[in-house]
Design a protein around this nucleic acid. Structure first.
Lengths: 226, 226
DNA sequence: ACATTATTAGAGTATATACTCTAGGCAGTC
DNA sequence: GACTGCCTAGAGTATATACTCTAATAATGT
């Protein structure tokens, strides 16, 4: 693998595990056992590394959120979207953690992220629309649909931060992909009132699959440690 | 005013405006025209300043979220809760911005914030319960109510971060209290499907008051700059 | 008046961080 | 074999940051 790609990979790994704020370019170089000079040969600065990682993230999510326009959506599609989005969020979880600072330090990133958000919101909106066309959700006026889409976006992007703060310990091992996907439970909770009778039971059953093991995730007394 | 209090006040102001990450203890001292030594006479370290500010924040929100148990809740109460919570969020907005880092650097804060979250979620839950008792919302099983409360919490605590990222510029002046309160619109959107027919129109009218001026807040092309 | 305590100034320090600079290795190729 | 273009090492640097230390000044009590 090329050094440039190794830098991106290691950076992502370290950022995810310990937070962008805690990882310096020297850390990244040391982790790869290369010299700082070498790192700076491949990237002009730390921002450029982060920007490149964002481009990967963007590409991944755009790929996941591609909506087929030639056929109706199914419950399986919805499951896939939810699973995929949370997978992506997990893989690039450092990004949302320090989002505001990152956007403040890089105008490029700010602009691109803004467009990215707009695209995501439009995709969520379109998914709702198509789920209504497919008879899974009751059709709703555009105004309500876009407010709902925004709520879904807020829940999705904030779910991980919530989990981290709700946890007692700060270790990386105490937050798992499984827990993260309980966010799907929360998103499905948002859809609940709009389900058509025909699909209600089916989606309710799906939601159950993601229900947190303990009655209240917040009160999780860490009896069960991973 | 005592120096100690001036330090807390200035810190909060600077943190809110430029982010905790960008404000050093030397900045705070310089802003107050006092020496670093003086600052460190009053606070052992930066974490202690932040912790004290959190205690204020906690106290404020706990005060706001005090729920009267001797009478039913009204729509005015609900409005008050929403307005108050967003006011508090605005006054201490730096806190949620760097939350994860702050919790990772201070075990005390982590523990206290966890309890704070639990209390807030319980309060939201209780508000929903009492709004149902008052005939404003349809009663729901505890399981759904707590999932809803969590969604409300996620929307509230993430709303500001969303606004900041959705904005094109990074200036502090471009984000206003009015915009922030459009978050109330989003929270009321969550309640919408559970409103009783008797109160539906009234809450819908209330919600309209907070509706974003432009059709899509995300696409806000900054035509109207504050 | 005197002693004690609380507060403040301001220079200073150890460490970290993002980044630079120079020298050189290594593959291919004429 | 030497030239060229890409890659790498590693020492080094300017700046920032959280925090310390000493001495002086103000406030307070007796």
């Amino acid at each position: 693998m090329k050094t440039r790609d190794k830098i991106l990979l290691s950076s992502l790994e370290l950022f995810n595990e310990r937070g962008e704020r805690n990882i310096t370019t020297n850390h990244i170089a040391a982790h790869l056992a290369i010299s700082p000079g070498n790192l700076y040969y491949h990237f002009r600065n730390k921002s450029d590394i982060i920007y490149d990682i964002f481009l990967e993230y963007e590409k991944l999510v755009d790929y996941y959120l591609d909506i087929p326009e030639d056929r109706p959506l199914t419950v399986e599609d919805m499951t896939f979207y939810l699973e995929s989005v949370f997978d992506g969020l997990w893989s690039y979880r450092f990004f949302h953690r320090d989002l505001e600072y990152l956007l403040d330090s890089d105008a490029r990133l700010r602009r691109d992220y803004r467009d990215f958000t707009t695209r995501c919101l439009a995709a969520i909106n379109r998914i709702f629309e198509k789920l209504a066309e497919a008879g899974i959700l009751q059709p709703q006026p555009e105004e309500l649909r876009s407010a709902m889409s925004l709520n879904v976006w807020l829940v999705i992007t904030n779910w991980m931060a919530f989990l981290k703060t709700a946890h007692a310990s700060e270790g990386t091992g105490s937050l798992t992909l499984t827990e993260l996907k309980q966010g799907i439970y929360q998103v499905l909770t948002l859809e609940l009132p709009y389900l058509t009778p025909a699909y209600r039971d089916r989606v309710l059953a799906l939601r159950e699959k993601y229900r947190p093991a303990l009655p209240e995730p917040v009160n999780d007394p860490d009896l069960i440690k991973i």
